[in-house]
């Protein structure tokens, strides 16, 4: 598997990987903080749990957005100057997957704004 191909696959799957990272962090952190009763701590007046969820969501969201932008550009480039069928397939898959991930990540972050941290 050549380096260029590995990059293409990572680009195509990147959004879902970002989703997995977000999921792991927000789940891991809230369970740890709530489990140990450390959730009352605040930073700048914001509860530590919503804060983690917010920052994690924003970080992974922007990662997915960047990936989406890159795969869109790649897709457009390939449309003008067609390469192999595999290349255009991978770039197209990247657009679809990263777009979907964007929504999934957003959807995951919503609870932070409507639910109490640990109840």
């Amino acid at each position: 598997m050549s380096g260029a191909r590995t990059l293409q696959v990572l680009l195509a799957l990147g959004g879902m990987i970002a989703w997995a990272v977000q999921f792991t962090i927000i789940y891991g952190v809230t369970s740890t903080l709530c489990g140990r009763g450390w959730a009352d701590a605040t930073i700048f007046g914001i509860g530590i749990v919503p804060l983690t969820i917010l920052t994690t969501t924003l970080a992974t969201l922007s990662a997915a957005a960047i990936l989406l932008a890159v795969s869109l550009r790649e897709d457009r480039r390939l449309r003008i100057r067609p390469a192999s069928a595999t290349d255009s397939f991978l770039s197209h898959a990247g657009v679809l997957i990263n777009g979907f991930s964007l929504v999934a990540i957003l959807w995951n972050g919503v609870p932070a704004f409507i639910l109490p941290a640990c109840a």
Binding site: I26, T30, S31, W107, N108, P111, P116
Partner: peptide, 16 residues
């Protein structure tokens, strides 16, 4: 009896 917030992540994924 897990925290509701943790559960909600899973509800989110279930619907997604």
């Amino acid at each position: 009896g897990l925290p509701k917030m943790s559960l909600s992540f899973f509800s989110a994924a279930s619907t997604a």
